[in-house]
Design a protein around this nucleic acid. Structure first.
Lengths: 224, 224
DNA sequence: AAGATCCGGAACTACTCAGTTTCGTATAGA
DNA sequence: TCTATACGAAACTGAGTAGTTCCGGATCTT
C-alpha cells in the first residue's frame, strides 16, 4: 500500500546519501499495468508476471515496492480515484434531464465500462476483504454516485422535482442498472441505454414525465 | 454437465447387466455442496477437495461424474433453477404495490441473498465463459425478472399503470439494486430496503405516487 | 570517472490444486 | 453367498504461481 517505512527508518529513507534518488518513477506504469490485467483476467487470474511484463518491469521491482499481490491490487484500485469527475465541473444546463444527458460522454461511458470490468474481477475478493471493499467503493462507486446526488439536489433546490425524492436510491440507480447490464446481462452500455434509463425510469420516478416523446432531448441540453 | 453418454454406449449404460444399479444417488449432495462452497469462496477459491469434503464424498467420485471443475460448477448453477417461483403461484392482490410487497418473503430474501453471493463468486468467470454466463442468467436472474414482468404486465392490463411503462427496465430494477446493495455497498437487503425501493422508485416510476405517506402499506396487501 | 543505488531478467523455492490412480469396502442383484 | 459395481480415502503427478535471490547493467550524484 505504498506505506512509508516505520518512523525509525524514515530518517534513513529520506536521506539518500549518495547515488540515484529514490524516485520510484516506475510506480505509475506498474499500477496502470495492474489495472489493465485486473480488468482482463480478474484478481485470481492476474499474476505478478503478467503485471511485470505489461509494465516492462521485473517481478523483483514489484516486490521491492509492494509486499504482496494483495497490497499491489489495493494500491492500483485506490489510485483510480484520480481522474474522475470534478465536483466543480459538473454539467449545469438548468434542467435535470439536461444535466443527466450531459453526463453521457463517450469518455465517461468507456471509463465506466472499464471500472465495471475491474469491479467484476474484484467481486469475489471484495466479499472477503473489507479493506479492498472500502477502497473499491471509494474509487469506483462513490465518485459517480455523488455526482448524481449533486445533480438531483440541484433539481430539488430549483424546485424542479419534489424534495421528498429518494435521492440516495436514484443516485445509485444508473450505476446499478449499468453494472447489472454489463456484468449480468452482458449487453452493451451505450448512450441509447442511458437515455432510455433516464427517460424511462429516472425522470418518471421523480415525477417528470417524458419531455418530448423521447425522440429528441428537447430540454436544451448542451450534451456532446 | 450430466451429459448422457453418446447414443452408442447408451444401450450399455441403460442395461446394467449385473451388480449395483448406476444410481448416482450422491449427485444432489455434491451439487448442493458445490453451491455452498461457491457462495462462500467464489469460483477460484473453491477446490474440488472442499466440495468433496462438504458432500462427504471422495474426490474421485466427483471426477467419475464430471470431467472437470468447470463442468461441475455449470451443472451446480444450472440445477439452481429448480425451486424458484412458480409462474402460476405469483401473488395477485389486485394492486401492483400489493403484488410487489407480497413478493417480499423471508424465504425469498434469503434465497436471493444466497444467489447473489453465488453470482459474486462467478462474476469474473462469467465475463470469460459464455456457457457459464448463460446458465447463470437462466438460473439466477431470469426467474425473478420474469416474475416481475408478469406483475407489471398485469398492472398494465388492469389499467393501473401506463402501457408505455418501460417494463423490461422496471423488472430488472429491484434485482439490480439488490445486487448493487449486497455486492458493492455491502449493506443488508431486507424487507425495509425493498419497501423503500418499491415506494421510492418503482411506483413513482410508473406514475403511482406513494399510497399512504409510506408509513403503512394501506393497499390491502396480504403479505406475510 | 567513481561510487552508490535502482532496475530488469532469470533462476530458484515452496506450495497449492486439478486431475489420476489405487485399494479396501459397502451394497444390490443373481 | 457370490459377484459386479460404485464408493470413500489417500497417495500421487504435474502444472502454475507467489514470493525470493542474485547479478549485470543503467543512471544519477559527486
Amino acid at each position: 500500500m505504498t506505506r512509508d517505512a516505520s518512523p525509525l527508518e524514515e530518517t534513513v529513507e529520506e536521506a539518500p546519501k549518495l547515488g540515484r534518488k529514490r524516485d520510484h518513477t516506475r510506480d505509475p506504469d506498474i499500477l496502470d499495468a495492474a489495472l489493465e490485467v485486473l480488468a482482463e483476467t480478474g484478481y485470481d487470474g492476474m499474476t505478478m508476471e503478467m503485471v511485470a511484463a505489461r509494465a516492462k518491469a521485473g517481478k523483483a521491482t514489484l516486490y521491492r515496492r509492494w509486499p504482496s499481490k494483495g497490497e499491489l491490487v489495493i494500491d492500483a484500485v485506490a489510485c483510480m480515484k484520480r481522474g474522475d469527475f470534478d465536483r466543480d465541473h459538473l454539467p449545469d444546463t438548468g434542467t435535470l434531464r439536461g444535466d443527466l444527458v450531459a453526463m453521457i460522454k463517450p469518455h465517461a461511458i468507456e471509463d465506466g465500462a472499464r471500472k465495471m470490468r475491474i469491479m467484476a474481477g474484484l467481486m469475489s475478493m471484495i466479499s472477503r476483504n473489507p479493506e479492498l471493499a472500502e477502497v473499491a467503493r471509494a474509487a469506483i462507486v462513490e465518485p459517480r454516485a455523488s455526482a448524481n446526488r449533486i445533480l438531483l439536489q440541484r433539481a430539488i433546490d430549483r424546485g424542479e422535482i419534489s424534495e421528498h425524492s429518494d435521492i440516495d436510491s436514484l443516485a445509485m440507480l444508473s450505476q446499478s442498472m449499468a453494472i447489472y447490464r454489463v456484468l449480468v446481462l452482458q449487453k452493451p452500455v451505450n448512450r441509447d441505454f442511458f437515455i432510455q434509463l433516464i427517460d424511462g425510469v429516472v425522470l418518471p420516478a421523480v415525477g417528470l414525465g417524458r419531455p418530448l416523446a423521447t425522440v429528441d432531448g428537447g430540454a436544451g441540453a448542451t450534451d456532446t
